[in-house]
């Protein structure tokens, strides 16, 4: 398993998606991890530079509901940790 993405250290301000409060907009920096779940996220279009917004959380705080442009999806906190994002400052 070669993991070149480890070679590029994420910029200082990149965060795990699960750390963002509801309503935050952000841009995907990279998707870490490996295997089927990572591939599934990539297949669904969660790729570097894609913008997304944290909409809400389910009762109990998990899973997280996110919007990516015209569509929405839910994922658990555990999966959200593998999505590194850069918060987007509103103009």
């Amino acid at each position: 398993m070669s993991m070149p993405e480890q070679a590029l250290a994420p910029p200082q301000e990149s965060l795990q998606l699960n750390a963002l409060p509801d309503g935050t907009r952000c841009r995907i920096h990279t998707i870490t991890g490996s295997g089927p779940i990572r591939q599934r996220l990539l297949d669904m279009g969660l790729l570097p530079d894609v913008e997304l917004q944290v909409e809400r959380r389910a009762p109990g705080g998990d899973p997280i509901w996110i919007r990516l442009g015209s569509w929405q999806m839910a994922l658990r906190k555990a999966e959200a940790t593998s999505i590194l994002v850069l918060p987007v400052r509103d103009a």
């Binding site: 779940i37 599934r40 996220l41 669904m44 899973p63 509901w65 569509w71 929405q72 999806m73 839910a74 994922l75 658990r76 555990a78 999966e79």
Partner: peptide, 11 residues
Amino acid sequence: EEAPFVMELPP
């Protein structure tokens, strides 16, 4: 192991 949960939410 627990499998991940990723699901699309249609309008």
